[in-house]
Design a protein around this nucleic acid. Structure first.
Length: 493
DNA sequence: TGAAATGTTGGGGCG
DNA sequence: ACGCCCCAACATTTC
C-alpha cells in the first residue's frame, strides 16, 4: 500500500524541532502562511489532513465535495512527495489526532490556517487552548481571505450588512499582500507517523457518478493554477459582458479551487490585476467586475462570522415565520431537472452532472425553488451543499438568503425572476439549453425557452411530446409568482 | 444581480 | 389643417 512506503529521501532527514502543518481548506503549497511559518521555524514538517467529518456539525462535506477532496488530497500528496515530503492522512477528532501525532513523532508545534464556519471555529479555538495549555506551540494564520472578518467594521463597530459600503471599506483599507511561492523542499522528519491512504477515506464513490465532474475539473493546486491562467488569458477580457451568459465560457470557474484553497484569493487578486494591466487599481474598469465578485466572497465570510446562526436560520428574524410549502415531489422535480421549465432544468442537470452551475442560472433556479415552488431556502441550500464541488458554507448561505430575501443586502422579496425571460435574455441562441436538454434541441429558438407555448406542429417537428419526452411545467409561472407575493405580504402583516 | 402594471409621449393613419 | 385614436416605445410605479 502506497501509504506505507517511505518518502523518497530527496533531502537529508532533518533534526531539530518537528512541526505539524494541519491542512484543511488550504490544499496548496504556494502562498500558504501556516506552512511558511512551520518551514521558517526550521527542523522538519509533518503535513497532515484529518477527516473529522463528525465535527462539522450539519455541514460535513457533501458527496461532490468528497469526490473533489479525494482528488485534491492525492494531488497535494504528490506535490509534497516531489519536495521530499508526503501527506499524512488521519481520521478522527482533530484534537485527538493532533495530540497523537505530536506524541508519535515528537512534534511540539501545530500550525494551521483559519476556518470560519461556526462549528470549525469553536473546535479550533478549543484545540488551540488545549495545545497551548499543555505546552505546545499552536498558531493559526489567514490563508483564505483578503481581510479577516473582524478587521472591517462599520463606524459604529458593527458588522456590515450592506455590500457596497463593505466593498468601499475593504478597498480603502486592505492592500492584499503579494502571494508567496511554494517552497522547493519540505523537510521530512526522522520517522513518519501512521497514515491512511487517501483511498482509505473512501471518498471516491463506488458508483462512478463523478465521471461528468472528472471530465470538467482538475482538482489540485496545478489544476487551479492552470484554470487561473486560462481565465486571465481570455474570459477575463470580456468578463463584464459575458459573465451572465451560461452558454459560453464567460466566468472564471475558480470557485471550487478557491473553496478548497488550491489557490489563494491573493493569488487570484494579483493575477487579475497583473493580467489586465490595472496595476494596483482594483477599481479599474478592466477588472472591477470580477474583483467585486471576490469581494462578495469576503462579504459572505464576514456575514457568516458575525451571524453564525445563518446557515440554519434567516438573518432577518421576521422570515422565521414565512409559510414555506413542503412538497416533496416538487422538490424532487427541481433536484432532478424535471420541472418542465427549460432554464431551470438545464441548470439543475448541469449541477448534477458537473458539480457546478453557472451563477446566473443559480440565481434563477434558486428563485424558482424559493418563490415559484415556495420551498424553503434551506432545502435548496442543502441540495446545493451535497451536489456542488464548490459548496462553501459562507457563500452558499449568503446566496440562498439573498435570493430568498431574508439575508443581508438581499434581493427584495418581490424580486421574482421569470425563468423564461431570463432564458431569452441570457441564452438567446439556446446554446446552454440545448447542451443540457437534448430532448428539446430541435425546437426553434422561439419555442425553446417555453415549449408549452409551442403549437402541436412545432412540437411534432422537433420530436417533442410534452408530458412524455419532456415534462409540462409543474407550476404556472404567473400564478405561482402572485401566490408567492401574497405569502410574503402575509408574513409581513 | 426583476417583472409586471401603469403612465406618458409622440408618430402616423384617418376622417 | 386639425383633432382623434391607436399603439409602440419608453418611463415610472408597484409588487
Amino acid at each position: 500500500m502506497s501509504a506505507r512506503t517511505p518518502a523518497p529521501l530527496a533531502v537529508p532527514v532533518n533534526g531539530g524541532p518537528v512541526s505539524i502543518v494541519w491542512f484543511r481548506q488550504d490544499l496548496r503549497l504556494a502562498d500558504n502562511p501556516a506552512l511558511s511559518a512551520a518551514l521558517q521555524r526550521g527542523g522538519s514538517v509533518i503535513p497532515v489532513y484529518i477527516d473529522s467529518s463528525s465535527e462539522e456539525g450539519n455541514w460535513a462535506p457533501g458527496g461532490a465535495s468528497r469526490w473533489w477532496l479525494h482528488r485534491s488530497l492525492e494531488s497535494l500528496d504528490a506535490a509534497l512527495r516531489a519536495r521530499g515530503s508526503r501527506l499524512i492522512v488521519r481520521r478522527g477528532t482533530a484534537l485527538h489526532e493532533l495530540q497523537s501525532l505530536c506524541r508519535e513523532c515528537g512534534a511540539d508545534a501545530c500550525y494551521w490556517n483559519r476556518r470560519y464556519e461556526p462549528a470549525a471555529r469553536e473546535r479550533d479555538k478549543l484545540i488551540k487552548q488545549t495545545l497551548r495549555s499543555t505546552g505546545y506551540i499552536a498558531e493559526s494564520h489567514n490563508a483564505t481571505l483578503l481581510a479577516e472578518p473582524w478587521e472591517l467594521l462599520t463606524q459604529s463597530g458593527g458588522a456590515y450588512q450592506v455590500y457596497t459600503p463593505f466593498r468601499r471599506r475593504l478597498l480603502a483599507h486592505i492592500k492584499p499582500a503579494a502571494p508567496t511561492p511554494a517552497a522547493a523542499q519540505v523537510p521530512a522528519p526522522r520517522q513518519w507517523p501512521k497514515s491512511l491512504s487517501v483511498a482509505q477515506l473512501q471518498w471516491l464513490p463506488a458508483i462512478p457518478w463523478y465521471r461528468g465532474m472528472a471530465a470538467v475539473w482538475r482538482p489540485g493546486e496545478a489544476g487551479a493554477a492552470q484554470r487561473l491562467q486560462d481565465f486571465v488569458a481570455s474570459p477575463l477580457t470580456h468578463y463584464a459582458q459575458r459573465r451572465d451568459q451560461p452558454g459560453i465560457e464567460g466566468t472564471s470557474r475558480l470557485s471550487p479551487h478557491l473553496h478548497h484553497g488550491e489557490l489563494s484569493v491573493r493569488q487570484v487578486w494579483h493575477g487579475v490585476l497583473r493580467a489586465t494591466g490595472a496595476g494596483a487599481d482594483a477599481a479599474d474598469p478592466r477588472c472591477e467586475k470580477y474583483l467585486a465578485e471576490l469581494i462578495w466572497r469576503e462579504f459572505s465570510y464576514q456575514l457568516l462570522h458575525h451571524f453564525p446562526h445563518t446557515p440554519e436560520a434567516p438573518l432577518r428574524a421576521g422570515f422565521a415565520r414565512f409559510a414555506w410549502l413542503e412538497d416533496r415531489s416538487a422538490l424532487r422535480a427541481w433536484q432532478t431537472g424535471m420541472t418542465g421549465v427549460p432554464l431551470i432544468d438545464a441548470g439543475m442537470r448541469e449541477l448534477w452532472t458537473t458539480g457546478w452551475m453557472h451563477n446566473r442560472v443559480r440565481m434563477v433556479a434558486a428563485s424558482f425553488l424559493v418563490k415559484n415552488l415556495r420551498q424553503s431556502w434551506q432545502s435548496g441550500a442543502r441540495w446545493f451543499w451535497d451536489t456542488l464541488v464548490d459548496a462553501d458554507l459562507a457563500a452558499n448561505t449568503q446566496g440562498w438568503q439573498w435570493v430568498a430575501g431574508c439575508g443581508a443586502d438581499a434581493a427584495p422579496y418581490f424580486r421574482v425572476f421569470n425563468p423564461v425571460t431570463q432564458s431569452r435574455k441570457f441564452d438567446p441562441q439556446g446554446h446552454y439549453l440545448r447542451r443540457w436538454l437534448p430532448e428539446l434541441a430541435r425546437l426553434a429558438d422561439a419555442q425553446l425557452h417555453a415549449p408549452w407555448l409551442a403549437d402541436a406542429a412545432q412540437l411534432r417537428a422537433a420530436g417533442v411530446t410534452l408530458g412524455t419526452s419532456y415534462p409540462r411545467p409543474i407550476v404556472d409561472l404567473q400564478d405561482s409568482r402572485v401566490a408567492a407575493l401574497q405569502a410574503y405580504r402575509q408574513m409581513r402583516a
